[in-house]
Design a protein around this nucleic acid. Structure first.
Length: 577
DNA sequence: GCCGTTTTCGGCCCGACTGTTTTCAGTCG
């Protein structure tokens, strides 16, 4: 059955082709809104089972029918009709940066161009010459756009983009007359992948800032260079945008460029009802023509009688309604965390020594942490044999109080295909804490995978299921199982589910974690560090947890050491009774 | 095609930059 992302992709195809076909604006825009909602919704299979499709904002009777059709058959008659009239490959032309709907439509009508390859051929043959509004520069832009489309993936992992953005910001702080400066956009919202980097700043000398920006070594190709805005592509093809404004409307600018698009649309719709018009330049009172600018985002939201909405919540998935009712969560923060359960040392496949990992955790100010090597199922090169695990337990005990932090003896034990674990109960019982993860046999089918994970959850020694869906952000894959059944088992047995901070995992996703918390599951935020520097990856887990509306009470490692040990003891006690 | 703190009908967010224009269309975020 197609997952949410696949359904959303189909809806977007319908949306694009509807516009291409010249259908009314608000009709195809409804499909765009619906697609955005579907991406943020809990797994559709479960939503449909509960009959809640039309409760999702932006999905009405008609689109709900179409979604059901897509879920059942993989497509819908509406899409089939459109594809009868236009080949699917016209969508490629729209993917080319610089080519929009009008141009694509004109190219199709007059030259019969219906794919990226045909567009490239036509340019090569000089067939675009003499086309209305198609001068030499525009053709050059399209050529470059074709190269960009072919030569790169369209989204970048947060783990790549955030360090790059921080580097550029550091350079601008040093070399340009900037006052306030920050990254905005999807990066600030902690999206797992981003399409570009948005940087915003204030300055009394915007021209000078722009000059420095487009002169940065990362600026391989400058796309735009205005008096307040500029864009470039980095050598690897990542687009970076900069906006400069006076200090007086920093709040408006930051709010505008943090988005998301859907959040801003909803925010502006609320404003329109009060006779206000919101833009990056301020909030205009339409009746009087008076424009108010704000130095902080708090003031921007307060202008509509709303509390500050954290960037991670600005997805257009109910946060404005919650803000209006005073029901925003008190989101978990990095400083709420008192420990990290998931890390490796040179005892298994980590790169730093056990003592270095412990010392680094102590420096971070944690009260406790767990050393969780791999078990031997992955081979002795990666994991510990039972003997080696016993040795490590002894080694950790021998360290005593040396590091002023409690090191929990732990293991990341493999969940075997039948749901049993890689170590026997006697050995697991000697540990303070146990993480269990699937690392092999990912394609055993929905039913067997569900039974496998639930069996591990029901083991009295298992406290956390590591990276529960096995997803890869870059590959877009995950193993399939009955999410609701697994969540129910985790809630019932007092087993936490992990939110893994590895930027290519970020697993559970924000949508699944939000659903898990709703049904009473406790989440554990972990770095899954394989060296000291990667301990910082826990910040990515915090980001996803915030996108999942999690509060400190939902998160195991916000609790004290005693409470964590009580969490472990409670589960083991059930078996002992 | 969706939706309701003015509405079950009549609305539906906003502005900057580029290139090609001689006042603006197209694209983007």
């Amino acid at each position: 059955m197609p997952n949410n992302a696949e359904v959303a992709r189909r809806l977007m195809q319908i949306r694009q082709l509807m516009e291409f076909a010249g259908e009314p604006y608000f009709q195809f825009m409804a499909y765009e809104k619906a697609a955005a909602s579907v991406e943020q919704a809990p797994p559709l299979a479960d939503v449909i089972e509960r009959g809640g499709l039309e409760k999702i904002p932006g999905i009405g009777e008609r689109i709900a029918e179409r979604i059901l059709e897509i879920v059942e058959t993989g497509t819908t008659q509406k899409l089939k009709d459109l594809l009868e009239r236009y080949p699917e490959s016209v969508l490629e032309v729209l993917e080319v940066p610089g080519v929009g709907m009008k141009t694509a439509r004109a190219l199709f009508d007059t030259l019969g161009i219906a794919s990226a390859a045909q567009l490239e051929q036509a340019i090569g043959a000089g067939r675009l010459e003499g086309f209305p509004r198609m001068g030499g520069k525009t053709v050059e832009n399209i050529k470059r756009g074709l190269l960009m489309r072919r030569g790169r993936s369209h989204r970048w992992p947060i783990g790549t983009a955030l360090p790059l953005a921080e580097g550029i910001i550091a350079c601008l702080r040093q070399g340009a007359p900037v006052e306030r400066i920050a990254h905005a956009g999807s990066l600030r919202r902690q999206e797992p992948t981003v399409g570009d980097i948005d940087i915003v700043c204030t300055s009394a000398q915007p021209e000078r800032v722009i000059e420095v920006f487009v002169g940065l070594p990362e600026a391989e190709a400058v796309l735009a260079e205005g008096s307040t805005k500029a864009s470039f592509w980095t050598p690897q093809g990542l687009q970076v945008d900069l906006r400069v404004v006076p200090a007086a409307n920093w709040g408006n600018l930051l709010q505008h460029f943090t988005g998301s698009r859907e959040h801003n649309v909803q925010f502006r719709e609320m404003a329109v009802k009060r006779g206000l018009r919101v833009s990056e330049n301020g909030i205009l009172e339409v009746a009087t023509g008076k424009n108010r600018t704000f130095e902080t985002e708090e003031e921007v939201y307060a202008a509509l009688d709303l509390p500050f909405i954290p960037p991670e919540l600005r997805l257009g998935s109910g946060e404005l309604e919650a803000a209006r009712r005073g029901r925003l969560p008190r989101l978990v923060e990095a400083r709420d965390l008192r420990g990290d359960f998931h890390m490796h040392s040179t005892w298994s496949d980590g790169r730093d020594a056990l003592e270095e990992m412990i010392a680094a955790c102590a420096r971070k100010g944690y009260a406790y942490h767990a050393i969780s090597e791999h078990s031997w199922g992955r081979g002795p090169a990666f994991g510990l044999t039972p003997e080696r695990l016993r040795e490590q337990i002894a080694a950790i005990h021998a360290l005593g109080e040396r590091f002023r932090i409690r090191t929990l003896c732990c293991i990341e034990v493999d969940i075997l295909p039948d749901g049993t674990l890689d170590f026997d109960d006697e050995l697991l019982g000697q540990l303070d804490f146990v993480i269990a993860s699937v690392h092999s046999a990912h394609n055993i089918g929905h039913k067997r995978m569900t039974a496998r994970i639930i069996r591990a959850i029901e083991h009295p020694c298992v406290n956390v299921i590591g990276h529960p869906t096995g997803r890869s952000v870059s590959a877009g894959t995950a193993y399939e199982f009955d999410v609701e059944a697994v969540f129910a088992a985790a809630a019932r047995t007092g087993t936490a589910l992990e939110m893994n901070g590895n930027p290519d995992r970020l697993d559970l996703s924000n949508q699944l974690a939000r659903r898990a918390a709703e049904v009473g599951v406790t989440l554990a935020l972990d770095s899954d560090a394989h060296d000291v520097s990667q301990l910082e990856r826990i910040s990515y887990a915090v980001g996803q947890a915030r996108r999942a509306w999690l509060e400190p009470r939902n998160v195991l490692n916000t609790r004290s050491l005693d409470d964590v040990l009580a969490f472990v003891a409670a589960k083991r006690a059930v078996r002992a009774r």
